[in-house]
Design a protein around this nucleic acid. Sequence first.
DNA 1: ATGGTTGAGGTTCAA
Length: 264
Amino acid sequence: MRIATWNINSVRLRLPRALELLAAEQPDVLCLQEIKALADQFPARAFADAGYPHQAVSGMKGYNGVAVVSRLPIVETERCDFCTRADARHLAVRIAGGPELHNLYVPAGGDIPDPAANPKFAHKLEFLSELRVWFAAERNAGQPMILVGDLNIAPLETDVWSHKQLLDVVSHTPVEVEALSELQAGLGWLDAVRHRIPADQRLYTWWSYRARDWDVSDRGRRLDHVWVTPPLAGAVRHASVLRAARGWEKASDHVPVIVDLDLG
DNA sequence: ATGGTTGAGGTTCAA
């Protein structure tokens, strides 16, 4: 099973790029974040015509929003709200004959890495904490599950262009990395991408729109992730990051991440 | 020291 995840930053604006991605990479399931659309604005017909008729969408007006489109039937769908906000940041689906898949868009957290001074950063930490508690209460480490999405945290030193210069920058601060690590430890999630692309290699999935030349300066961060629970640890066959997508016309600031699983 | 760009929607937020 091939799973792709992509923060598309407006599904309506970038629909043509998404259809090209599906045609080129042939994932079985594509998970999207930041669709920036209401569910009834989602281009369902276009994805269905492209061979992805099985869909789940959690949308809102203008911001956030996550969606899953699949070649394989989706047999169950669940949306959770965290931090008492109907924020369209989570969608769980069960793929027919396959594992449960959680698609997440973690709050970015604003600019100031201090929860007392910055409510957005406080929200980010609280969201991660609630997510950890939710998984501990509602699921267990023996269930085969996949967690994908824009987690808005680059945990490793090689997940950012400069570990030292980003220690005070939201997305790489120790307090966030610790919160993410606690979430990961909860069910023993394995970082599927780093399982296949070792941590001694720099790896980024996001480059700011504000750089003069994203490719030359290469000041990226690995914000987008694919994790699996222990029963699937041995199933991870291949992982890739589509860096070239950052150079597409009308590119998202994030690029797709793809993982292949051998589910037997 | 601070700006730089993008998207949605509406003249400003969030990223």
